[in-house]
Structure formats: C-alpha cells, structure tokens
C-alpha cells in the first residue's frame, strides 16, 4: 500500500470515496447541522479535528494492541478514544466559543457516535497505512466531510428563500438535495479507485 502517493490518498478520501456522499457515513450531522453555512463550516472543522486526533490515537493503539496480541480490543478501544476526543473538543469549544457550542448543540456530543470517525479508524487499519498516510487520510476524510456539509448548507440557505412546493419543504427537500449531491459525486469515481 505504501506505493500509493499521498495526494492520491487525499483525493481518494475527500472526493472519490467521500465519506458522506459515497459511503453514507456521518449522515446525521450532514442533515442536522447543515441549515446554516457558518455553523456547517465550524461543525466540519470540529469533525476534522476529531478525525485527525482519533486517527493518530487509533494508529498508536493499533500498534499497541498488535504488540500485546489483543487485536480483538480494536473496536472498543477506538470508541473510547473517539469519545474522549469529542469530550475534549466540547470542553475546548465551551471555553473558547460558547456561541458555537450552543449552535452545534446536541450534534457536538453526537460526533462521539459519528460513524464517519469510527469508519475512518477502521478503514485506515484495514488498509495498513503508515503514520503519515493515516494523517493524510484523516485530513482528506475531514475535508470531504466539511466539503459535503458546506455544499448542502449553501443549497439549503438558498432554498430558504425559494418558493418550493409545500409538500417537499423541509426534510424532504434536504434529502432530495443530498441525493442529487451524491449523484454528482459519482462523477469523481473515474478519478481513482
């Protein structure tokens, strides 16, 4: 796997196999926090941060578990690490930006159970990336997540002012946009593997 260039990993994680739009991971914040562009961007930042930290920790823990011969603890250890990282981010945000803390609301602690992050940790282990590759992979996945969130938030903000039929207003419309976005991201599938 090490012959794969770093930029390739990045493009792969962010566009071709976008976590949200191709793998359908992390849908709940994708639909829940995508109402406003500003909040969506910051949510993307928070998720990216958690991804980077938990990716690093997951790499270390994977090595540790291999060394002591207990790889079956992988899943539960990752969960613990991710939960702690989210707790850390929550404390940090509460201190630094109470307004953002309020805006993200329940979705901030929900990053804990965000499948995109656990998925990232498991994928990178499966693919056997080294430390640098893990970081790039996490960065790519975070960028992809943020990109998807920003795109849909932009659409939703515009559609707030549009005169859409009453039956599809709200959640329905959001899901339709998500589908169309996913469809358009299919176009990237020719880029890599």
């Amino acid at each position: 796997m090490s012959e794969e260039p770093l930029w390739n990993i990045f493009i792969n994680a962010s566009l071709v196999n976008n976590f949200v739009l191709a793998y359908f991971l992390g849908i709940c914040p994708f639909l829940g926090v995508s109402g406003k562009l500003g909040t969506a961007t910051k949510m993307g930042g928070a998720v990216m941060f958690v991804m980077l930290i938990s990716s690093m920790c997951a790499f270390g823990i994977h090595l540790l578990l291999e060394a002591i011969g207990a790889p079956f603890l992988q899943l539960i250890s990752y969960i613990v690490v991710i939960a702690s990282t989210v707790q850390l981010v929550e404390m940090f945000l509460k201190k630094m930006s109470p307004a953002l803390f309020k805006a993200l609301g329940i979705f901030l602690p929900l990053i804990t159970t965000n499948c995109a992050i656990l998925g990232l940790a498991l994928f990178q282990t499966n693919k056997g990336y080294n430390f640098l590759e893990c970081l790039v992979y996490a960065l790519g996945a975070g960028t992809g997540f943020t990109l998807a969130l920003i795109l849909i938030a932009g659409f939703r903000e515009q559609l707030e002012y549009a005169d859409v039929p009453k039956v599809i207003k709200g959640t329905v419309l959001t899901l339709i946009i998500a589908g169309i976005l996913s469809l358009s991201f299919m176009g990237f599938s020719g880029l890599g593997n």
């Binding site: 823990i61 603890l73 613990v80 690490v81 702690s84 850390l88 404390m91 201190k95």
Partner: peptide, 22 residues
C-alpha cells in the same frame, strides 16, 4: 490494555477539565 488506555484518557480529560473550566 483497556484499563491502561482509559486511565491515560481519563487523566488527559481531567487535566483538560481543569484548564478549560468555564
């Protein structure tokens, strides 16, 4: 192993709680 991991994380969180207490 799990005890060790959780202990380390607990310490990190405890320190962070002190530093970032609002």
């Amino acid at each position: 192993a799990l005890g060790g991991i959780t202990l380390v994380l607990a310490i990190v969180l405890a320190v962070a709680n002190r530093k970032l207490y609002v």
